[in-house]
Every structure is written in structure tokens, then in C-alpha cells.
Design a protein around this nucleic acid. Sequence first.
DNA 1: ATACTATTTGGTACTATAGCCAAATAGTCG
DNA 2: CGACTATTTGGCTATAGTACCAAATAGTAT
Lengths: 108, 108
Amino acid sequence: MRQKINSPINFERRARIIKAMAHPSRLAMLHALADGEKCVCDLREIVGADVSTVSKHLLVMKRAGLVADRKDGLWVHYRLRVPCVLDFMTCVEAVLDESREKACCKIG
Amino acid sequence: MRQKINSPINFERRARIIKAMAHPSRLAMLHALADGEKCVCDLREIVGADVSTVSKHLLVMKRAGLVADRKDGLWVHYRLRVPCVLDFMTCVEAVLDESREKACCKIG
DNA sequence: ATACTATTTGGTACTATAGCCAAATAGTCG
DNA sequence: CGACTATTTGGCTATAGTACCAAATAGTAT
């Protein structure tokens, strides 16, 4: 049975997913995964943090359902599970643009 | 001059916006604002928290550029500034669906 | 000015998140 | 097995976010 769109429980579930994206390093990783899966070591280089930190970030995103992993020998490869999350960035940029407009160019 | 799409500073800016959405009450408010502006008192009823809490949530979203406010006598009306943020919910639901599928119906 | 209403701000207690180091686990290769 | 590499986990500290109450602010109306 489907939840009502505006039931509190639904907002909690959605917030968990959105929260899992709400970190610069995690956004950078999602962006990097756009062109295919990457091992933790690759992602570590991209975000430039301790491997353990990166691993924990990935766990957060995995639990949220944003990424999936695949073990291959010593390496664990992560991949985007629902690529549409990246499309959202266009809208996020629109928020930034709108803010810039209001901050610098509006008269009165 | 435009920032490179994957510059660290850009991920920070985007994370700030996404973080401002990453709370059940704030999502509920954004959803409620879809059909036009609402006063703080309306939003308070919708989320069922202390007015001061609601006010602080709104400040977070205002600073992020998600909502704008307009004073009218005693009331302050908030409105969505960039409605496309709500379109993202379709994708968030896809993440939830994908998770449900993997959890319950996949064989092997 | 006083009484009243809507909203914001300050303070504080509580919980959650992030980062790093060190240690544990898992797999490869000689 | 022992040495080595990739990743995860545990533990700790620092920082950030949340919620409520109480007090301050702002506007209306008498």
C-alpha cells in the first residue's frame, strides 16, 4: 500500500536520502560516479580525505540507496544507483543563480 | 566568471542548499508552499513544532535561497523561490522504490 | 499607552555528524 | 604461511544541528 505523498513518515524517508547527499565530499563523489564505477581509492584521491572518512561517507550513501558496491578482489567498486540525483544539480544551480541575481542586480 | 562544475567550492555551495532541504519538517514546508505562500502560523500547524523552531527552519531555507519572505502586517508570508526543488522528489521516490525492489523482490 | 497577536532571537541541553588515527578484516601473491 | 594492499570498523574529539522555553521585537487595535 502506497503512502500519502505528504505523510510525515514519507518526509522522513526522503530527508534521509537528501541528507545523504548534503555534504561537499559526497556530492563530489556522486559527480565522479557519473561516468561509471570507481574504487574507494579513486574516490579518496578525488575528495582528498582519509580513506576511513571516505569509506564512511560511502556507507552513508549506500545505506540511503544512492550508491551500490561490488567487490572485485581487493577493490570495492561503487556506482550510482539512481543517476537522476545528478539532474537535480541543474536546479541547485538555479537556486544559486537566483540568489546572485537578488544579491547584486536588483534595483529597489 | 563561471566556476568549473566540479570545483570544490561549487560542491560546498551546492551542499549548503541541499542541506537546507535535508530535514523532514523543512521538506514538509517546501511541499506545503507548492500551492502558494503561507504564513509562519500555517506552517507551524503543518509541521506541528514550536513556532520558534519553525521560524529557525525557515531562516535556514531563506539563507540557502530556497524560500523568500514578505511581511504583511503582523504576518510574514513565505514562498518558494525556485519551485524546481520539488521536482526532485520524483527522483527521491525512485531511490526509495529501487531500495524496496532490491530488499524484497530480487532473486539471486 | 495598554493589550493583544505574530514572529524572531537568545540561551541551553541534547543528539548527530565529521574527521582522524589505530586496529581489524579481507584478499592477493610469493 | 608471511608480507603486502584495499577497505572497513572502533574509538575519540570537535563541531554542527535541533528543539524547547523564555524574552524581545514588531505591528494592530482600543
